[in-house]
């Protein structure tokens, strides 16, 4: 059930990103929905499951883009792991948390993206204004999606049963 829900979330996000969001661009940028989901899920699930969900979401995104397969999988796995480390230190009910996490995660994303582009020998040409708008947009989407993710992780679709708790160390 949870897997089906996550798969639907992923597919809908991919379709929305490639169609609807095109007309909702702000300063030439659109939010990275997949990244925001990975950040929010890592925040409630911790580093290992955060990394796992980042890897799977990123890989499917890569297959959909069909370019440089693995780049999003690797970046989002890393972001999921790092953001997941903040799981127990942060007060989840606080509204600052999702914003800070989204901002940190998005900065990490662009950092890794530029690093991997150097490795691929493809100088990434993205305006600073687009990156800035993307960061803010991601924070905004995180703010909208956080409550749902938090509630679902407590007693809804995204909740893990006790036997899974050990897995997260």
């Amino acid at each position: 059930m949870r897997t089906a829900g996550l798969a639907a979330l992923l597919m809908i996000s991919l379709v929305v990103e490639s169609t609807l969001l095109e007309s909702l661009k702000i300063w030439g940028a659109k939010p990275d929905l997949i990244l925001v989901w990975v950040i929010l899920l890592s925040l409630v699930w911790g580093p290992r499951r955060g990394a796992a969900v980042g890897f799977v979401f990123g890989l499917v995104e890569d297959l959909f883009f069909a370019k440089y397969i693995g780049i999003n999988a690797l970046i989002k796995m890393s972001v999921g792991f790092i953001i997941g480390l903040g799981e127990n230190k942060l007060v989840k009910e606080n509204i600052i948390v999702p914003i800070t996490a989204a901002l940190t995660g998005s900065i990490l994303f662009w950092f890794f993206a530029f690093a991997l582009d150097l490795y691929l020998g493809r100088a990434l040409k993205v305006d600073f204004s687009i990156i800035l708008a993307n960061l803010l947009y991601n924070c905004f989407v995180a703010l909208l999606g956080y409550k749902w993710v938090y509630k679902s992780s407590q007693n809804g679709l995204l909740k893990f049963t006790e036997q899974w708790r050990d897995f997260n160390g």
């Binding site: 890569d62 370019k67 693995g70 780049i71 690797l74």
Partner: peptide, 9 residues
């Protein structure tokens, strides 16, 4: 992953 992304440019 680093290997595949290089292959699938």
């Amino acid at each position: 992953l680093l290997f595949t992304m290089k292959l699938t440019d």
